[in-house]
Amino acid sequence: MTPLAKLLEAALFASARPIPTEELAALDPEASKAALAAALDELGEHYDVDGHGVELVELGGGWQILTRSEYTEAIERAQLAARPARLSAAALETLALIAYRQPLGRAEIEEIRGVSVGSVLKSLHERGLIDVVGRGEGMGRPLLYGTTPIFLEYFALRHLDELPRADELAVALRAEPRAI
């Protein structure tokens, strides 16, 4: 491996959170953007080609070394690490709406989901998956929510564009309902 790839590996190993590309670049001010990208490629390939138990993953606007999923069971059985609790269906539905329509207020979410979402919003906010990003125009200037970098991390997304576009979904709201 090149010295830069080794430096990146050490930094990624030392960090508990994904490291944004800019922070990786700051590790070696002399390295060009291209050199950094090449070193990241090299490190990822090193793990993939040589068959390591970990892999390099780009998520939440940064890079992180993660264990490969085939070892999850064994690691969890040995109680070395535990998977976080899954999000409830209510939480996922609320997140899905916010991810696609942010900034989005509570009333709109309730209108679409058909249930009240106060406590779901609260717990999503506490988990750092959403944040208040502004206030709406309407009555009482309602709080508007948006997703956070932790949201991207949680779903191992590089950015929001990685979600399918609304018109790519099978039940796209593209056309008016058929004549009824």
Binding site: L92, L95, A96, Y100
Partner: peptide, 21 residues
């Protein structure tokens, strides 16, 4: 439509859940 997005998120979340940092 939202439920479809939920499926996408559920798969992505499961994928990340299965890998430890």
């Amino acid at each position: 439509q939202m439920r479809e997005v939920v499926d996408v998120l559920e798969r992505a979340g499961e994928d990340r859940r299965n890998r430890f940092a």
